[in-house]
């Protein structure tokens, strides 16, 4: 199956001379939820803006559902909906008018029942005749989502959809995103929050300083995350790991006062019981023990650090 979005060799240098994207290659699969994770200024918004036609690429090309976003911009753009990071809405329009406007703008004939459904899905129905300026920030965010959905896009970009959104709305939003995915919409979202990517995404991409540093199935990432470390604080420091414990592939650290055992929580057996029995037999005593799990957060931070 060909990817629904294919970004190849994409670079962007702003007029200021700042290079925000460096030879980015990325493929998004049809029907998936893809989370783009990265620190402030990593280039997430720049990447999305180029795909949506708001920013011009300096180099490289992007295909959306097989259409070149520059040459076949009409076909490409009519498939895409964008919820921007900033709360940019008109002020004096009503909710109903602005959502209907978006539908027309994307070349679709008026369809009041559809607009009604979108507004109801986003709990905006009671506000349909209110001017946008009278809405709260969270409601404005929902209006932006409604606008993006008004033309029934096949691909939906959500640029930090949960910034400044309360827990309840966040959950509503995730429910909506899943429902959309179930109807076949491909969703690309950016976030700073690892839990969010963890909870929602099928695949996760990490971007830092304009470069994609990792793209992985979430399940695969989680498997990597499934590794745990058991740390034993020894009563008496060791100079080296005794020969009798060699099978356990232990590491010695903190000047010989800690033994570290790495194991897979998802494996058949962890080997902890055997290790403890062998330690006892070797006469090694410990005063404390702890376990550690490397989180996506850690992987993320170490990836981001590595590059800087």
């Amino acid at each position: 199956m060909h990817p629904i979005i294919s970004v190849s060799n994409l670079s962007k240098t702003y007029a200021s001379g700042f290079q925000a994207l460096k030879n980015v290659d990325l493929e998004i699969r049809a029907g998936e939820i893809f989370a783009l994770l990265g620190p402030n200024g990593a280039g997430k918004t720049t990447l999305i803006s180029i795909i949506c036609g708001i920013v011009r690429a300096s180099e490289g090309r992007v295909l959306a559902d097989g259409y070149d976003i520059v040459k076949d911009y009409r076909a490409a753009r009519s498939k895409i909906g964008l919820v921007p990071q900033e709360l940019t809405t008109d002020a004096f329009e009503t909710v109903w008018a602005t959502v209907s406007f978006s539908r027309g703008l994307f070349g679709k004939p008026p369809n009041p029942p559809l607009v009604e459904r979108v507004l109801k899905d986003l709990s905006l129905w009671e506000k349909k005749d209110n001017k946008i300026i009278t809405l709260s920030g969270g409601m404005k965010r929902r209006v932006l989502i409604a606008k993006a959905l008004a033309h029934e896009p096949q691909i939906l970009f959500l640029d930090e959809p949960t910034a400044g959104v309360d827990v309840e709305l966040r959950q509503d939003m995730w429910r909506l995103v899943r429902e959309l995915r179930d109807t076949g919409v491909t969703i690309i979202l950016t976030t700073h929050y690892i839990e969010e990517a963890e909870e929602m995404a099928d695949r996760i991409g990490v971007i830092n300083k304009g470069e994609i540093v990792l793209v992985e199935e979430k399940a695969e990432l989680m498997r990597k995350l499934g590794r745990k470390r058991l740390i034993l604080h020894l009563q008496n420091p060791l100079a080296s790991v005794p020969q009798s414990l060699a099978d356990h592939r232990l590491e010695l650290s903190a000047h010989g006062s800690e033994l570290i055992y790495t194991y897979d929580t998802q494996g058949e057996r962890t080997g902890i019981t055997a290790l403890l029995a062998d330690l006892d037999r070797a006469g090694i005593r410990f005063k404390d023990l702890e376990t550690e799990q490397s989180s996506l957060e850690e992987i993320f931070v170490s990836l981001v650090r590595e590059r800087s």
């Binding site: 949506c52 036609g53 708001i54 911009y73 009409r74 076909a75 490409a76 753009r77 009519s78 895409i80 964008l82 921007p84 900033e86 940019t88 809405t89 008109d90 002020a91 978006s102 703008l105 994307f106 070349g107 606008k147």
Partner: peptide, 14 residues
């Protein structure tokens, strides 16, 4: 000025 131009630029309009 307000930034709402993003929608026009991202729409399939010539």
């Amino acid at each position: 000025f307000t930034g709402t131009i993003f929608e026009i630029l991202s729409a399939p309009v010539s």
